[in-house]
Amino acid sequence: MSRRIHSLRAETVFFPSANGDQIEGFLAQPSDVDSFPGVVLIHHLPGYDQATKEMALKFASKGFAALVPNLYSREAPDASPDDAAAIVRAQGGVPDDRLVADVDGAGRHLRGLVGGNGKVGVIGHCSGGRQAFLSACRLQLDAAVDCYGAFVVGMPPPESGLKMYPVVDSTPSLSCPLLGLFGADDKSPSPAHVKELADALRAADKDFEFHSFDGAGHGFFAVDRPSYRVDAANQGWDLIFGFFGRHLSGAAV
């Protein structure tokens, strides 16, 4: 990836999930290059929100096409992001199989774009970090980034009422290199959780790199929240663009 800031185009699109449902997404792509990789950007539990869409714009400005599938398209297609998130939370969250189908559909849409180089990575934050890891274990992808995904390791509290289970046992199926970015002060995932995941990746002989940032907790990329930590976020973005640049550049074989 070059260091220049690309011209870009962004719009709402509709595309089929791999389960056949038509879902909404926010697509941002560079408009001044002939070829670009794709990134499926999974929104966090608070929803298909402004902050996530701004991340998609950032990816496009760096030369990637980024597609954010609205995981709450079905329950609340026209609601504001916070209302949709509240509804889905009250219903127990997004089922894993449906999430994987939505990421699969988003990846297919990216590969089919005019100019798409055929390579697709996935990234998610918080609940999306777990979902990015899960997607990379279930789907054939080219690179994955887990930003402080909770419950990759460890069970959520039974009081959560969410349909969310640890997915560390899927590690042997991981299809691509993994970058993990964590806050050293985070409780979920805690440093012990991060170590357990690293041990599982090492045992399965997977290509991965993990970084934990001192002075950062959960949500340090979130510019609209008090958890934002500028130094960790800046370092993290450099690592993300370097990692995706290495693994997603060039035409797919």
Binding site: A150, P157, G161, L162
Partner: peptide
């Protein structure tokens, strides 16, 4: 951290 704690 996200607690995910929810009572309905």
């Amino acid at each position: 951290m996200c607690t995910y704690l929810t009572e309905r």
